[in-house]
Amino acid sequence: MSGHGHGHGHGHSCECEHEPAERGLEFGLYRRIDLDKLQVLNESRDGDGRKVFKPWEQRTERNQFVESDADEELLFNIPFTGSVKLKGVIISGEDDDSHPAEIRLFKNIPQMSFDDTGREPEQAFRLNRDPTAELEYPTKVARFSSVHHLSIHISKNFGADSTRVYYIGLRGEYSEAYRHEVTICNYESAANPADHKVESIIPQSNMIS
């Protein structure tokens, strides 16, 4: 399986030289993340995890990264501001044993904890070392067609005490999630005529007394 993902990544990286602008747009889902609610468990320094979600053209920069704390595991809880169809993932780390070796993807489990990682993931990948952020791991799109919240569990690295990540790229499509909120507002305004029901009940209660 990992060989297939590896080959896919190289195929895309070759095409990327001819259409870098389009490639960057495809990996624009980082702009659809609700960063205020993004949560990273077992990060060694609070707030570092959100910094690895950045523009395509910054994917090889090394000035910002997240490192695991107690052991090699990291868990990213990523809420989106709408509905996402996730098509691919890139994970870039250091060119050493601290690079993630396996990721497990979970869909729509807000506030996921390490206690929840024992369940079956939507999809899992064995990773190759990718310090230049070139290798894409294509998802089974049918399983990731209505994603409001994505959890990425880095379950192991290549043998180091801690894991370091520089870039996480998410490729896919995004759609707004406003229609449901508008519907709720309509229901609230439609509930106002309930005042008439109260008026009709009052005379009846007077008659009883």
Rank of each mutant, 00 (worst) to 15 (best):
R62D: 03
N63T: 05
F65V: 06
F65E: 13
E67K: 12
E67F: 01
D69V: 08
D69H: 10
E73K: 14
F76G: 15
N77V: 14
I78F: 04
I78K: 00
P79Y: 12
G82D: 03
G82W: 00
S83L: 12
V84C: 00
V84N: 00
V84A: 01
K85Q: 14
K85S: 07
L86H: 03
K87C: 15
K87P: 11
K87Y: 10
G88C: 15
V89P: 06
S92Q: 08
S92V: 09
G93A: 06
G93F: 06
E94N: 12
D96I: 01
H99T: 02
P100S: 11
I103M: 12
L105C: 00
L105V: 09
F106K: 08
F106E: 05
K107W: 05
K107C: 07
K107M: 09
P110C: 11
P110N: 12
Q111L: 08
M112K: 14
M112D: 13
S113L: 06
S113T: 15
S113K: 09
S113E: 08
F114Y: 14
F114S: 09
F114V: 14
F114C: 14
D116E: 15
D116T: 14
T117Q: 08
T117D: 04
T117I: 15
G118Y: 07
R119W: 14
E120C: 02
E120R: 13
P121V: 02
E122C: 09
L127F: 02
R129C: 07
R129K: 15
P131L: 05
P131F: 06
T132Q: 12
A133H: 00
A133I: 01
E134L: 13
E134V: 14
E136T: 15
Y137Q: 13
P138E: 12
P138M: 12
P138G: 15
T139L: 12
T139C: 13
K140L: 13
V141K: 05
A142V: 11
A142I: 06
S145W: 02
V147T: 12
H149A: 10
H149Y: 10
L150I: 10
S151P: 02
I152V: 13
I154W: 02
S155V: 09
S155H: 10
K156T: 05
K156W: 01
N157Y: 07
N157L: 09
F158K: 11
G159H: 14
G159M: 14
A160P: 00
A160T: 06
A160C: 01
A160Q: 07
A160G: 02
S162H: 07
R164P: 10
R164D: 06
R164M: 09
Y166W: 02
Y166H: 08
Y167M: 02
I168E: 11
I168V: 14
L170K: 03
G172Y: 05
E176N: 10
A177G: 10
A177K: 10
A177C: 13
A177I: 07
A177R: 04
R179I: 11
V182R: 08
T183I: 04
C185V: 06
N186K: 09
N186V: 01
Y187K: 05
Y187H: 04
Y187A: 03
Y187C: 04
Y187G: 07
